[in-house]
């Protein structure tokens, strides 16, 4: 199993606590996590990404209990195995789009050719923006570039946080198409957390918080 979550709880030091249902997600499987605001969707995503550590429970990704990794190993593991798409696309502003993509293999130490980055950018029709600074791109283009950055190094898990919330129907559909297509091509497990009801009918496997 690519992702295996059991007995997961998280308590903010001086805030709400969350108890999450157990779930699994196999390689190539796509999972939609639905929930209203405040139900801990982003918290779950950050737990899966190892950006925060659970209060209790086990998160296994590719049979690695990520809560047991050291800080440094967790950073590296995240960089090599997990691609994350945040609600709003952010970049290192001082370098080009292509360099922003190549930052990922550089930081994680997972060798990935520049041609792969250009390939994916082109597939997402932002290839012509590769040598521009991120700030000069439209919001939609930035979102595509963020997707490209999350997937081009072929992570085994792709996590997306509200990828469609800011987009109209047509663009929302396109973005989900792209995500599914990229996940399918690399056989990655795809988890999308959202409150966007438009996505409800597209995914067979769903959990609701």
């Amino acid at each position: 199993m690519m992702i295996d979550v059991r007995g997961l709880t998280f308590q903010y030091p001086s805030g709400p606590g969350f108890t999450f249902p157990d779930f699994t997600c196999a390689a190539g499987e796509h999972l939609l996590v639905l929930g209203q605001s405040g139900k801990g969707k982003t918290t779950l995503l950050h737990l899966l990404a190892g950006m925060i550590r659970p209060t209790a429970g086990i998160i296994k990704i590719q049979n690695t209990d990520i809560a047991k990794l050291s800080n440094r190993d967790l950073d590296k593991f995240r960089g090599q195995h997990i691609g994350i798409i945040f609600q709003t696309a952010h970049f290192v502003d001082s370098i080009t789009v292509l360099d922003n993509l190549m930052l990922s293999p550089f930081l994680s130490g997972k060798k990935t050719a520049e041609s792969e980055a250009i390939n994916v950018l082109e597939k997402l029709s932002v290839g012509h923006k590769a040598s521009q600074k991120p700030a000069s791109l439209s919001v939609g283009e930035q979102q595509r570039c963020a997707i490209a950055r999350a997937v081009f190094h072929k992570p085994s898990v792709i996590l997306a946080d509200e990828p469609t919330s800011a987009l109209d129907d047509k663009n929302a559909e396109q973005v989900i198409d792209m995500l599914e297509e990229q996940a399918r091509q690399t056989g990655a497990a795809l988890i999308i957390v959202t409150h966007d009801k438009r996505l409800k009918d597209r995914f067979q496997k769903q959990i609701t918080l």
């Binding site: 990404a49 950006m51 800080n71 440094r72 950073d75 590296k76 995240r78 960089g79 090599q80 994350i84 952010h90 970049f91 290192v92 502003d93 930052l103 990922s104 930081l107 994680s108 130490g109 997972k110 950055r149």
Partner: peptide, 18 residues
């Protein structure tokens, strides 16, 4: 100003030392 960028670099595999 670049807190987000720095956090982002962490999610891409950059360590604290980086």
């Amino acid at each position: 100003e670049r807190r987000y960028e720095l956090a982002l670099m962490r999610t891409m595999g950059g360590t604290r030392a980086t």
